[in-house]
């Protein structure tokens, strides 16, 4: 479904992606793991055609209009309320406006439909950004650090929603620096360090390969073993 092969990206003299190769299969949750600055967002930007790669090939197995995107910067219209924000995109996609309310309900924001974005907490804004990403029921979802900075309860809610989306047929590509989140949520992960994929596979199998299975698979231990870098 989502493939990247030997992709290289440089910003000036700095190589930010070095021969990155992976494949995310249809209807799975693929996790790209690594610390800040590893190149995760650059990969999403290339896959969503916001950036060009210098070399290599990639495809997402869907048209751009069949993709949903949630980035660190939410891009919401802060003076408008939740439903107004979603209605803009419902109109652009040519889908009925009641879908906006459905999307809000899916992320637990139906009570805040008329609340202005600039009066909402970070967690609520993130849920609204997720609602916008899933509004048109995309085949492929790109989520950049979807639960970053959220309280555990809100993060759990978002994880549950991502799992539901996958169960309903979407392919989810997410980035995270939270190894625990990746183990819980992802069917397949790739570990990214300084622009290189240092390991990839099913989380439990990776942990087994690196003797990092304790009571629960410990991807963080694998990462530290492979890179010498401790995640913040």
């Amino acid at each position: 479904m989502i493939k990247m092969s030997q992709v290289v990206k440089r910003f000036g003299a700095q190589t930010v992606l070095s021969e990155v190769t992976f494949e995310a299969k249809e209807r799975e949750i693929f996790g790209l793991l690594g610390p800040s600055g590893a190149g995760k967002t650059t990969i999403i930007n290339i896959l969503t055609k916001q950036l060009d790669a210098d070399s290599g090939s990639y495809s997402i197995g869907a048209k751009m209009l069949e993709t949903g995107l949630m980035l660190d910067a939410d891009g919401l219209y802060v003076r408008l309320n939740c439903v107004e924000n979603l209605n803009i995109f419902a109109d652009i996609y040519g889908i009925p406006r009641y879908k906006s309310l459905e999307a809000l309900k899916n992320v637990g924001l139906e009570e805040s439909a008329k609340k202005a974005v600039n009066a909402m907490s970070k967690g609520m804004r993130q849920r609204l950004a997720l609602a916008r990403a899933i509004l048109h029921e995309p085949k492929v979802l790109f989520l950049d650090e979807p639960a970053s900075g959220l309280d555990p309860a809100t993060a759990r809610g978002i994880h549950k929603l991502i799992q539901n989306l996958c169960d309903n047929g979407a392919t989810v590509f997410l980035t995270t620096h939270n190894m625990e989140e990746a183990v819980k949520l992802c069917n397949y992960v790739a570990l990214l360090h300084k622009g290189k994929i240092v390991e990839q596979g099913v989380p439990a199998e990776i942990c087994e390969r690196h003797n990092a299975v304790k009571t629960v698979p410990d991807l963080e231990a694998v990462f530290i073993k492979l890179t010498g870098v401790e995640l913040e």
Partner: peptide, 13 residues
């Protein structure tokens, strides 16, 4: 600045 334009363009605008 708020990256709103980016989301519009990804949506096909």
């Amino acid at each position: 600045e708020r990256k709103s334009l980016r989301f519009l363009i990804i949506a096909g605008v």
